[in-house]
Computed example of a mutant assay.
Amino acid sequence: MHLSYCTNVHPAEDFDGIVRQFDTYAAAIRRHLDADVLGLGLWLAAPLASELAADPALRRRLRRELDARGLEVVTLNGFPYEAFQAPVVKLGVYYPDWTDRRRLDYTLDLARLLVDLLPEGAARGSISTLPLAWRDPWDAARAGAAARMLDELAAGLAGIAARSGRPVRVAFEPEPGCVVETTAQAAAALSGVDTERLGVCLDLAHLACAWEEPAEALARLRAAGLPVVKVQVSAALEAADPVAAAEVLRGYVEPRFLHQTRSGYGDAADDLDEALERELKGPWRVHYHVPLHAEPAAPLTSTVPVLRAAMRELLAGPEPACDHFDVETYTWGVLPEEQRPRTDAGVAAGIAAELAFARALINEEATA
């Protein structure tokens, strides 16, 4: 099994900026963990991915930079196309979607470069991507266009595997507000795809926000024949009583990311400020990735219990249901002021603490 942290928490989008990230954050995290090798769930913006895919020498240089620092990459985050740490992202993260050829080109570029980054012992690589599109607009014509793109994607991945000898799978990530929000919708939308190449990325914060029970969700995916290609080890914000917690919740309202809010009674809002304005009936789960190892401001809690239950199901039995686990807390820079790290060293220490939490949990469940 491979454990990594997702670098979409960092803003750099050119080659030199990515390498500086390795020195500023990854090297420090590896020292905190006293690890021989640190896994990165690398995020590369589309222009850089295109540059790397077209330039074998640049790919070799990136591999040398990783190796020199004791870093490895088996998974890439291909969900944000570019500018993920811009001042305002919101709905922009869902474009271009899977009806747009730019999304296909970007994903295949990532696959082409990933085969040259994979460590020798890795059985395969993985790329997570958005769950087709934001839900509106969506109709039969757009669904048909996306289906054709997925057929081309599978064919392209097969060609890359044949040429390189290294398989790469693409994982579609159910997310609140999208065409595919739940595992039931994933089973329906991905029915008939090439499951040797395509599957699901199970983001555990998203799973919690959909109010899905992990055992039932995984059983549903197994019944549909959809592999869990990648797991994003993440936790969402939870408010048992949103009225009592309203003042604290307002501290989490911020302009960069969308924080879809779901009530335990089925009510939904596309952002946290909308949920507060509408006073949705509680309890709430909010699509706000919070640090795994630390409780949010009281009286709020996190969905770490859902995370634990999901990991127990994923790692039960003689063979785990997934072998790529990526800690994805991209919100360090927008946390409420009193919880936000003030320095690069503080960010690195926080990510290291999350990875230590995830590593201990995996070891605990794998040996149970």
Rank of each mutant, 00 (worst) to 15 (best):
M1Q: 15
H2R: 14
H2I: 01
C6N: 11
T7R: 13
T24P: 12
A28D: 08
R31M: 08
H32V: 10
A35R: 12
V37R: 15
W43R: 09
L48G: 03
S50E: 14
S50L: 11
L52K: 08
D55Q: 04
R64D: 14
E65S: 05
D67Q: 04
G70K: 07
N77Y: 00
E82V: 04
A86V: 12
L91P: 07
G92F: 01
G92S: 07
G92R: 10
Y95E: 09
T99V: 07
L104E: 03
T107E: 05
L108C: 09
L110C: 11
A111H: 05
G121C: 07
R124D: 14
S126A: 14
T129Q: 00
A133P: 10
A141F: 04
A147H: 02
M149D: 02
S164I: 11
S164K: 12
V168L: 14
P174D: 13
V179Y: 07
A188K: 11
G192T: 13
E196T: 13
E196D: 15
R197I: 00
R197T: 00
L198Q: 05
G199C: 15
C201E: 14
L204A: 06
L204C: 02
W211H: 06
R220F: 00
R220E: 08
G225L: 05
P227H: 11
P227K: 10
Q232L: 02
A236L: 10
D241C: 00
A246N: 08
E247R: 09
V248K: 01
Y252M: 04
V253L: 10
Q260E: 12
G266Q: 13
A268Q: 04
D270E: 07
D270V: 06
L272D: 10
P283H: 01
W284K: 00
V290L: 02
H293W: 04
V304I: 04
L307S: 01
R308G: 07
R308C: 09
A310Y: 03
G317T: 10
V327Q: 14
E328T: 13
T331C: 09
W332K: 04
W332N: 06
G333R: 14
L335C: 01
Q339I: 02
R342F: 02
T343V: 10
T343F: 05
D344A: 10
A345Q: 14
G346C: 13
A349M: 02
I351Q: 15
I351F: 00
A352P: 14
A358K: 12
R359M: 12
L361S: 03
I362F: 13
E365K: 12
A366R: 15
A368W: 10
A368P: 15
